[in-house]
């Protein structure tokens, strides 16, 4: 039985994949289930199970496939993207850290979003600026509920509260969407503070114990492109200005990743 595995939908040739794999090996992930879109090859390694995955909307079927075929072999399974880096804030091995959450079927981990790194080189070393933890995007899909005043900041859910899931497969029923799961006995996932996660969102983001750093803007990605999945075509798209995603200096991942500052 694996203590902790991770699943991701990947594209062949994604330059973030190697550092993503290396980082998560370091923090305790024992096996990776990579669902490869686009037909190319993914890295081969003893701890990687690669699955060709030719779906146009790949995440939900991939997560269900992973739960069904590999879930029985892992105590915990993290569902991530290759721009998402999961860690314990004190650098604890995640396998040890997750023992603190054994009573809940899944932990919903808040995310802090980093803007483009601004200069070439290792991602985790150079991407040191992130958005504030209460940043919102004024998109209809981000409204807390329909009908709220679209002009008010408070009407929107902070992006940080859309959680990443680390589930106990034995207590997980199925995937309900890229960012949502159903659990057996109608249980709910919980945040690190013990707050329920509903439909993939938490009421408040924590970050005292666990967090996900999400690195946006890789390559030529624009803000508009990144959040296209949240924006119906007829809705106004957000500005392409990444500046709000670079307001905070935050190097908390460095000692966890073994990164040295650039001299």
């Amino acid at each position: 039985m694996l203590a902790l595995a991770a699943a991701a939908v990947v594209r062949a040739g994604d330059p973030r994949l190697d550092p993503w794999l290396g980082f998560h090996r370091r923090v305790g992930v024992e096996r990776f289930f990579l669902y490869a879109t686009g037909g190319g090859a993914v890295p081969e390694a003893a701890d990687i199970t690669a699955v060709a995955w030719p779906f146009e909307r790949p995440h939900r079927p991939a997560w269900d496939h992973c739960l069904f075929h590999h879930g029985a072999g892992a105590a915990w399974l993290a569902f991530l993207a290759t721009d998402e880096f999961l860690f314990a804030t004190d650098g604890e091995d995640l396998r040890m850290a997750l023992a603190a959450f054994g009573r809940t079927p899944a932990v919903g981990v808040g995310r802090l979003l980093y803007g483009p790194q601004g200069r070439p080189g290792p991602l985790l070393r150079h991407a040191v600026r992130r958005a504030s933890s209460d940043i919102v995007l004024a998109l209809p899909a981000m409204l807390r509920s329909p009908g709220l005043d679209a002009e008010r900041h408070e009407s929107y859910r902070p992006l940080a509260t859309r959680v990443a899931f680390v589930v106990q497969p034995a207590r997980t029923h199925a995937c309900r969407g890229r960012y949502d799961f159903a659990f057996r006995d109608e249980e709910l996932a919980m945040t690190e503070e013990g707050r329920p996660v509903v439909a993939g969102w938490s009421e408040r983001a924590g970050f005292e114990r666990l967090r996900v750093n999400q690195y946006l803007g890789g390559g030529a990605e624009s803000l508009r492109t990144r959040f296209a999945d949240a924006v119906p075509a007829h809705d106004p798209a957000p500005s392409d200005d990444w500046a709000p995603f670079q307001s905070e200096i935050d190097t908390a991942v460095w000692p966890v990743a073994g990164v040295r500052a650039a001299p």
Partner: peptide, 13 residues
């Protein structure tokens, strides 16, 4: 109190 900052945790633990 606007932002979380645990940068010191790995060194102080």
């Amino acid at each position: 109190n606007a932002e979380s900052d645990t940068t010191i945790f790995p060194f102080a633990r």
